[in-house]
Computed example of a mutant assay.
Amino acid sequence: MPELPAVVITRPRAQAGELAAAVAALGRRPVLLPLLEIAPLPDQTNLKAVLAGLAGYALVAFVSPNAIDAAFSHIVAWPPGVALAVLGEGSRAALLAHGVSDANARIASPGPDAASDSESLLRTLDLGALAGQQVLIVRGESGRELMADGFAAAGAIVTTVAAYQRRVPRMCAELAATLHGVLAAPNDWIVTSSEALRGLVALVEQLDGMSVSKLQQQHWIVPHARIAETARALGLARVTLTGSGDVRLLAALQS
């Protein structure tokens, strides 16, 4: 029986372990290839100042588990009465790791059958109740403006603060060897960020003797239409759109 393709997991390393274990449990070989590195801000003065005033916000929205972990390194206790909003189960788990749950705080997130994205969160919230209220968005240095625009359109007073850096890794001998290995034959790639996909193309362009056309032979499994659109814009046609959540990503590997 021929060996199944490897499953290349491109999430930041800290968020890849659970998915890799689930892939291995399916009898597939996971390959960790983090295409984004998460790093602390060089200057955290503004982040600390904003977080010191948490009690003044009606709602604090975190865009990712990384945003939660970075912010809670400066939060001693969550202020009573301040609601939280997150995009998915991974962020709920991150909050729980810091002692915040539905038992002691109001946490809003899209339902289990909804996509884990800003659009779904905005549909979940009672935006009208936020008119004239202070809302804080905690995210990386770069990101989509859709969430902030949605809150502002509802009449909320929106503050956005960066909590961490997100960057494509620099080319090195180890990364080059991994890329050559996974691009030598068609494999299944799980990509959960458009930024990561664009970064991958930039990295492959730096490889000696390797053409970006090798990427066209790969199978791309993505959870969001926005990432699928990015893939196709980059000339990658073998794209499977699953919807959000690891369960759907894993189901795509089995289909």
Rank of each mutant, 00 (worst) to 15 (best):
M1F: 10
P2N: 15
A6T: 12
A6F: 08
V8H: 00
T10L: 05
T10R: 07
R11G: 02
R11C: 01
R13W: 06
A16G: 10
G17S: 13
L19P: 02
A20L: 12
A21I: 02
L33D: 10
L36A: 11
I38E: 01
A39V: 09
L41Y: 06
L41P: 05
P42R: 04
T45K: 12
N46L: 08
N46E: 15
K48T: 11
A49S: 12
V50M: 11
V50C: 11
A52K: 11
G53Y: 03
G53T: 08
A55Y: 01
A55H: 12
V63F: 08
I68F: 06
S73E: 15
H74G: 10
A85Y: 00
G88T: 08
G88C: 11
E89C: 04
S91D: 02
S91R: 02
A94M: 09
A94S: 15
A94H: 01
L96R: 15
L96S: 14
D102F: 05
S109W: 01
S109L: 08
P110V: 03
P110E: 02
S118F: 04
L122W: 04
R123P: 00
L125Y: 00
A129V: 12
V135R: 00
I137R: 03
E141I: 09
S142V: 10
A148M: 05
D149E: 15
A153K: 14
G155V: 13
A156Q: 01
I157S: 14
T160F: 02
V161G: 07
A163P: 07
Q165K: 14
Q165G: 14
Q165A: 13
R167W: 04
V168W: 10
P169S: 11
C172R: 06
E174N: 06
A177H: 10
T178Q: 15
H180F: 06
A185T: 14
N187K: 12
N187A: 15
D188E: 13
D188M: 07
W189P: 03
W189D: 06
W189Y: 12
I190K: 02
S193W: 03
L197P: 09
L200R: 07
V201K: 11
V201G: 03
L203Y: 05
Q206T: 14
D208H: 13
D208L: 12
S211M: 12
S213C: 06
Q217S: 12
Q218A: 04
W220H: 08
V222S: 00
A231N: 10
L234Q: 09
A237Q: 14
R238P: 00
V239A: 05
T242V: 10
G245V: 09
G245H: 06
D246H: 10
A252R: 05
S255K: 14
